[in-house]
Amino acid sequence: MTGIPTALKPPIGRRSNLYFVWRGVLGDPVARIAAGVIAGMMLAAAFAPWISPWAPNAANPELRLMPPGTPGHLLGLDQQGRDILSRTLHGARLTLICGILPVVIGAAISIPLGMLGAWYRRLGAVIMRLMDVLFAFPMALLAIMLAALMGPGIGNMMIALVVTLIPYNTRVVYAAACLERDQAYVEAARAMATPDLKILFVEMLPNVVAASVVYSCTIIGAVVITAAGLSFLGLGVQPPTAEWGIMTSEGRSFIFNAPHIAAVPGIAITILVMAFNLLGDSLRDSLDPRTRLRLVKPAKET
């Protein structure tokens, strides 16, 4: 082994994390479908004004409550005679934004908070007790309380959702970071005079972030539903606007006469949540060097 000629390291086999995420997601049929569904929803949201057959708020009172399959209205019409397909396509915009943005912002706050808490134990005790206070309220109740205090509006609703999410994600990150903190490689990093913040955000972060990514993907569903609840109470998105949560709650009153009004956006929410959960699982595998080689074995050179 010692007689190897002095050649510089060949770049073969050196792949970025993004490459493995890409390969991992494409290599796993379930993740491929999930990613496809999410991409499709994002495209539908982006191009809603061009692909939807009707304007989201254009009402045709004569055809109200008509079931799916009504000529010109593929998914039927709601209680005011608005086209459900068009409303669902338009609603994807706000739903995706309300679901994803608070989770991303919440994670961006939670990850440093949880890691600093795990590293500086006194600060950690303060942070985690503070989180316990927030935990004392049910997620929906806390969001309602905050949104009510700040007043209606999409911006305020998102702030309320972010605050609601922080304790959950912080706890996940804190637990993961506490495990990593006692690993020998962290002590090795100290012995190598690595500065504290570098240990935290260069050495430990890649090991901690996977837990948060997976958790964030699973919580997107809960956030969409909480956002819908806030909208239902008149604290988030205001009623005429198309949004899946509002559409579902509006359809509730007609659940026996016209179940499709609530079912269509409800199924859309379900598919969205499932897609994110499955994608989260796949991301966890492809972000971890220990499991991802299995995923890309066919493409791996010796």
Binding site: A184, Y185, E187, A189, M192, A193, P195, N207
Partner: peptide, 30 residues
Amino acid sequence: RRAQIVFQDPLQSLNPRRTVAENVARPLLN
């Protein structure tokens, strides 16, 4: 720089998410 340590469990003492080259280069970069 002058005093270093080698641990008992070799696998645990290396950062699993970094290539071994990154692991070895860390003290140099520091």
